[in-house]
Design a protein around this nucleic acid. Sequence first.
DNA 1: GCCCTGACTGCTA
DNA 2: TTAGCAGCCAGGG
Length: 113
Amino acid sequence: MTQSDFERVYKAVRLIPPGKVASYGQVARWLGWPRGARTVGWALRALRDSDVIDVPWYRVINAQGRISLVGDEGPRIQQKLLEAEGVVFDDTGRIDLKIYGWSGPVVPWWEEI
DNA sequence: GCCCTGACTGCTA
DNA sequence: TTAGCAGCCAGGG
């Protein structure tokens, strides 16, 4: 894990369009880490402690369409930001990935950046 | 180098 | 649909 790996995670997250969401595992696969979901989560957590603010971390959720944050502020802020982009949460606080899930970049962007 | 922890995932009951 | 369990990967003590 190097700094450039973190940057790749951030770039992938920045590619998620407004109103869409992606899972940690999904992002990991784009980066070529089939089992690196937890690493993506780690990178995003580190993001909160850094000065980087232009990464839409809130568009990343777990594979079940749920917010994985633990605590008071985090989950509330994430849901609020997503709702502001038009993402709808159902009665159980879950997002319908069939509607809001992003299929990922169509082109192998990582080879062009 | 070992062990614990974590914003995860997929399978099974 | 929810709960439990094992597998995974990386950082920090």
